[in-house]
């Protein structure tokens, strides 16, 4: 009668357990990575959306923060949180600069004045790198002038 497991069986069991542990660690890593990708994407989307919501009204004086571009009637700006950190902190992004450095965020804002008579077009684009491929989110808002009469 044989007691216990043979050496081959022990080695096989150990190998299986190691493979199982490795697979579980791999899956856990993938889950953590999926959460990170999701966090980066959602962070970039939130920043882009909040910018359009905050400055996407005729009452806002966003043009004061933007610079004229070579294209006539178009004003542009980049990474607005650097120019007005207090505004972005009030918008819920007190660590926007840190977030941008960590996640490789780059914002471009473009305001086309008088795209149509009485109408401006505001576009905010945030590029980011959540995976190997660069991604971007773009939101556009049409702004009606308040006073035309």
């Amino acid at each position: 009668m044989r007691r216990g497991l043979a050496l081959v069986e022990v080695l096989l069991a150990a190998g299986l357990l190691a493979a199982l542990g490795g697979a579980v660690l791999l899956m856990t890593g993938q889950s953590v990575d999926a959460l990170r990708v999701d966090r980066v994407r959602m962070g970039a989307e939130e920043l882009c959306r909040a910018t359009v919501e905050r400055f996407g009204r005729g009452e806002d004086n966003l043009q004061a923060r933007l610079s004229p571009s070579v294209e006539a009637g178009v004003l542009t700006g980049e990474n607005l949180w650097e120019q007005m950190p207090e505004v972005y902190a009030a918008m819920g992004f007190p660590r926007a600069a840190e977030q941008a450095r960590r996640d490789g965020l780059a914002m471009k804002v473009r305001l086309r004045r008088g795209a149509e008579p009485g109408l401006d077009v505001l576009t905010c684009e945030v590029a980011f790198r959540a995976t190997r491929l660069p991604e971007r989110v773009v939101y556009t808002r049409f702004l009606l002038h308040d006073h035309v009469h």
């Binding site: 149509e116 008579p117 009485g118 109408l119 556009t140 808002r141 049409f142 702004l143 009606l144 002038h145």
Partner: peptide
């Protein structure tokens, strides 16, 4: 929103 806003401008 953009389409309706543009329509209002026109």
């Amino acid at each position: 929103d953009a389409a309706l806003t543009e329509a209002i401008a026109h």
